[in-house]
């Protein structure tokens, strides 16, 4: 038990790194390809350790990202908790899929994320500025997932987080 408590901070370190990647300045011409780093990292931890990282963690991370992006407090918290729920609901299924099949699920979740953001935009501001370009970043998410997964699994084994 003691050992487990020791390494729990690694999860938060990866989340903070994800946050930094997420808010890092990004060239505007490649901006549409910007992956949702934080979402990928969060999904990994939920799939790997559903008893440690769950809806509450996702909610907190959402609040933090809301603060950074200047969106209304709660929008990303809503989206992240919902995504966490979707993943938790079927985490055993996701775990047993091949990596490329997981990529498709990530692609779907990422589109979900963008559409929810758009939905909030429409409800709160009553403006529609949809571009089909949001799907590029979801596509990048799907491709990146394999690397994120392998890297984080390495980290998890290294620190024996359980």
């Amino acid at each position: 038990m003691n050992n487990i408590a020791h390494n729990y901070w690694v999860i938060w370190v990866t989340i903070i790194i994800g946050l930094l990647l997420q808010i890092m300045p990004w060239s505007s011409s490649f901006y549409i390809f910007k992956p949702h780093w934080l979402m990928l990292i969060l999904i990994y931890w939920i799939v790997a350790l559903p008893h440690r990282v769950g809806i509450t963690t996702a909610f907190l991370v959402g609040i933090i990202i809301d603060l950074f992006l200047g969106t209304l407090l709660g929008i990303h918290a809503f989206i992240f908790s919902l995504i966490a729920y979707l993943v938790l609901f079927r985490f055993q299924l996701i775990r047993n899929l091949a990596l490329w099949q997981q990529s498709f699920i990530i692609f779907g979740l990422s589109i979900c994320y963008d559409l929810l953001l758009l939905l909030f935009q429409i409800i709160l501001y009553r403006v529609i500025t949809i571009t089909p370009l949001i799907f590029f970043s979801s596509f990048v998410d799907g491709i990146l997932w394999a690397w994120v997964f392998l890297l984080l699994r390495q980290i998890r084994r290294c620190f024996a987080i359980d």
Partner: peptide, 21 residues
């Protein structure tokens, strides 16, 4: 139960949004 947790999280998020507005 998972359903209760997500319900609480989502309603809390929505109330935060409303408060912020």
């Amino acid at each position: 139960p998972l359903g209760l947790r997500i319900f609480l999280a989502l309603s809390f998020a929505i109330s935060l949004i409303i408060c912020d507005i």
